[in-house]
């Protein structure tokens, strides 16, 4: 019996303290997934929620997939729920700051790879990315993050999201198109605003 299976068995027999072993073993994995989807200041809270959900759902874990994989699905689901709740709250999304717009402007106008490499600034890139993702639906941002940003296969993303492969492909395509349209619009806006 694996370490996980043994801990799970003990937890299910009422020895709750063994759940702490599962947290210690998988916290890094869960935090890694969550931090790729939610803002840094909310990662601990969402990861906390993942483990609480994990405990509550433990009787339903049949061992068909490794425990870590099962937790990954819960983590992705918790991130999805986070964005859905945020969308419901209808938080207004602010416009790009001058610095961010400038970064996007330079990045999109870059002619060569060399030029582009010189321009990249990770913090600005992440800020612009966060700005763009905030304009997508929770489904689009989740699938785009898994496939385009994390480089997971469509099949893997489908498994984590509980969607069909076709559904993931379609949503991913639409999300990329939406993102491109956003950048084009922003770029054009700045092009027009620039003094000639």
């Amino acid at each position: 019996m694996s370490d996980d299976a043994e801990s799970i068995d003990r937890v299910l027999r009422g020895d709750i303290d063994h759940f702490a072993e599962l947290i210690a073993r998988h916290r890094h994995h869960v935090l890694k997934i969550v931090q790729g989807h939610v803002p840094a200041d909310r990662v601990a809270e969402v990861a906390h929620d993942v483990f609480v959900r994990g405990y509550r759902s433990l009787p339903g874990y049949g061992g068909e997939v490794p425990f870590e994989h099962w937790l990954s699905r819960l983590a992705v689901r918790a991130c999805y729920d986070y964005w859905r709740a945020k969308k419901r709250a209808d938080v207004p999304v602010s416009a790009l700051t001058e610095d961010q717009a400038g970064w996007l402007d330079r990045a999109l106008a870059a002619e060569s790879d060399e030029q582009f490499r010189e321009q990249r600034d990770w913090d600005d890139a992440l800020e612009v990315l966060a700005w763009a993702l905030a304009r997508l639906s929770p489904e689009q941002r989740l699938v785009l993050t898994l496939v385009s940003l994390e480089g997971r296969s469509v099949r893997e993303a489908a498994d984590l999201l509980g969607w069909t492969v076709v559904n993931v492909k379609v949503r991913c395509y639409r999300a990329r198109q939406a993102l491109r349209t956003l950048f084009f619009q922003e770029w054009n806006r700045h092009e027009l605003a620039r003094p000639s």
Partner: peptide
């Protein structure tokens, strides 16, 4: 845009 997407992936 493809380059920007690559930078985003790397930054991520």
């Amino acid at each position: 845009l493809e380059k920007v997407e690559q930078v985003f992936a790397q930054a991520h």
